[in-house]
Write a protein that binds this DNA or RNA. Structure first.
Length: 104
DNA sequence: AAAGTGACGCATT
DNA sequence: TAATGCGCCACTT
């Protein structure tokens, strides 16, 4: 509860992801000032608020997190599709096409 | 300060 | 593409 600073940054960054775009845990972590991608997951997990578009956060290979709280990955898929994000597979989004950060 | 835990990342198989 | 194993780093207790 002390490290809210880091979590808050992460949540803020996630909330800044534009509609129709996705970002990887690693990228967000870097933007938050850390090097570990897992921390990003905890930050969202502890605050599964409707304002946090955690559906736009995917793994480095574009696959969605299976442990999307109580909802399934299908939930994210539906939301992402509604935003215009294409899927290459049932669990993978088109990272090359919708990745927020490509040049790194 | 040390150990335990983890919504990951990457290299191999 | 999928599955497995190892490693890294930050957070909690």
């Amino acid at each position: 509860m002390e490290a809210q600073n880091t979590f808050k940054k992460i949540r803020t960054l996630v909330a800044k992801i534009p509609k129709g775009k996705v970002a990887t845990y690693g990228d967000i972590a870097r933007l938050a000032g850390i090097t570990d991608a897992r921390v990003v997951g905890w930050a969202i997990r502890g605050n599964t608020d409707p304002k946090i578009p955690c559906q736009r956060v995917v793994k480095a290979d574009g696959s969605v997190a299976e442990n999307y709280g109580a909802a399934d990955w299908r939930e994210q898929k539906s939301r992402l599709l509604s935003e215009g994000v294409s899927f290459k597979a049932q669990k993978r989004v088109d990272l090359e096409k919708h990745r927020l950060i490509q040049n790194f």
